[in-house]
Amino acid sequence: MRVANWFTPVIALARIAWLRTILYLFVILDMHAFVRDTRDKGEHPGLYEPLLLARLLDLPKPSVANTTVLYVVLIVACLLGATNYFPRVAGWIVAPAFTWWVLIGMSDGKVDHDHLALVIALWVLPTVKAGSRGIASYGDQTRSEAAGWAIRCIQICVIATYFLSAVAKLRSAGWALTWPGSAVLTWAIVRRPHPVGEWLLHYPWVLHVMQWVGIIGEFCSPVILWLKGRWQLFGALFFVGFHAANTAILLIHFLPTVVCWLAFAPLERVVPWYRSRRAARSAASARSASAAGSDGDAREAEDQTEHGRQAEQQAGA
């Protein structure tokens, strides 16, 4: 039972509401900035080579008609889902539609590995029943196991992206640890020339240190699932730094994974924090306005602080 409960922590619905807005808007960005050639593939399906999932589901070959419909449906559903009105209906449209979008985008002989957490996030978000709608949902402190499960699934996929890439490094060498001492970063930089990277080519030992730090970090990444509070934050910052370094050296950003790190952030605290700050400020200005002070405002500020404390107690889950 304890194991089962690990998969379903209680987390405030507000975190889901924030993630819906952020991730659905991110999908729109993704369609234009990252997996952005799906409609081109509809126009020229010459190099189309369907992936396993597309073959299993017998998905039609991309065409101008179906990729255009897919595009419009995704934009509309993402915008609707991002408002947190009808988020589940919108979410159940976005999940299969974006999966298909990415499947087409990656059906040309090259598969990127930065979309696992985002795609799974889109499939788990609509499983959570929303308590309140629209703006009110961002402050909804109702804690839910369904929300916790969705969050946990996203967290697992974020971590799996790192841990499993360490596994892939062992596997490609015939299950041996040769990757960190190899010339892989030199190879990558030569193939993606870029000033910072080319400068580093003169210092292969720096690249080897980076490879060791990278693979050790990837192997240890599952620990982050069990860390709490600021230690978990340090873990997240380590990997955000890891991506910043990759972007500087190789122009590989992994943003679709980076945005999913927000599943670890106590986003449900944003509204209570903002409210208590506003209340404290109005109480302070009321106090300075009249020497006698307004009891009512001060009491309200105290109430808000109490709210903030409640929210804090469920953070770190």
Binding site: L51, L53, W179, V184, T186, A188
Partner: peptide, 17 residues
């Protein structure tokens, strides 16, 4: 990679001699 999204995370995973 064919098994996306459940394929290996094999980008830059090879050991270059």
């Amino acid at each position: 990679d064919d098994a996306w999204p459940f394929g290996p995370m094999s980008q830059y995973a090879m050991s270059v001699p």
